[in-house]
Computed example of a mutant assay.
Amino acid sequence: MTPEHFQHLIADVTAAIEGRTLDAGLADFLNQRFPADGPEFRAIADACVAAVKAGWMCDREHGGIRFGRVIKPCPELAGFSVDVVEMADVAGPHHVHPQGEIDMIMPLDGDAKFDGHGAGWFVYGPGSAHCPTVSGGRAHVLYLLPQGAIEFTRA
């Protein structure tokens, strides 16, 4: 697994969602078009596992969370950035999504849930905020951020 190959996998997703509003309807679309038990979702999830093992993904750690920006916003991904975290039964730092956030939730063990959601896609709309939390096990969570926009706060 290389960063270039990973970007190619993500480009299929961003091409399908380019120009769409970040809302619950987008989450429904993603869960239908790229279901958690489908080949595209599985390919991305497997790529994350391989990339973490290779050491170029989730290459930083703080407070029990492994994380890293994998791809900066770029035209090839419709202006989205890609971040991936690995979390297990922990809450991350509070932040705001000025333009929204698209989450791909990939449980690794247990009954891992991200902010109460199991395997699949969840979308936070523009201006939303949260302390990202994984409970019930360990998971990778991939974040697509329009223009890479995120603001860490002191909730």
Rank of each mutant, 00 (worst) to 15 (best):
T153N: 04
H5A: 15
I102R: 03
A16N: 09
G100D: 14
P146G: 10
A51H: 07
A51K: 02
A36R: 13
Q32L: 04
W56C: 07
R33K: 13
G100V: 06
I102L: 10
I102Y: 04
A50G: 03
H97E: 08
F152T: 04
G120R: 13
V85M: 05
R66T: 10
D89L: 12
A88T: 11
V141E: 02
V49G: 03
K113C: 09
G137D: 13
G79R: 11
H8T: 14
A149G: 02
R69M: 06
V84A: 06
R69F: 07
A149C: 13
L142Q: 03
D103P: 02
R20D: 02
L108Y: 09
D83L: 00
I150H: 13
G79N: 07
V123I: 00
G55L: 11
P132T: 03
T2Q: 01
A91M: 10
I17F: 02
V70G: 03
E4K: 04
R66Y: 09
A45C: 05
V90T: 15
D46E: 12
P93E: 15
P126W: 09
G116R: 02
R33G: 06
L144G: 07
M104G: 08
Q147C: 11
A139W: 05
S128W: 02
S128I: 05
A24F: 05
A119Q: 08
L142E: 01
I102H: 01
P126C: 06
S128V: 01
T2G: 07
A43Q: 09
E76W: 00
Y143M: 14
A27V: 08
R33P: 02
R42L: 08
P3V: 01
S81Y: 09
A78H: 02
F152Q: 06
P3M: 00
L142V: 09
F80S: 01
V49M: 13
P73F: 12
I10A: 09
S81E: 07
F41N: 07
Q99Y: 15
I17H: 01
V141N: 03
G25D: 14
F152C: 04
Q32A: 14
G68V: 01
L144F: 09
R60D: 06
T153R: 15
P3R: 07
A50L: 09
A50M: 05
A45T: 12
G116M: 06
H130Q: 14
A15R: 12
D23C: 12
A27P: 06
G110V: 11
H5E: 15
Y124S: 08
L145F: 11
A36D: 11
P146K: 07
A51R: 11
G120Q: 04
P75R: 09
C131E: 14
A88M: 08
A11Q: 05
T14V: 01
G125Q: 08
C58P: 00
I17K: 04
T133R: 14
G25N: 15
I150M: 10
A155W: 05
R66Q: 12
A50Q: 07
Q7P: 00
H97K: 05
A51W: 03
H97V: 01
G68R: 09
I71C: 13
V82P: 11
I71K: 15
H62V: 08
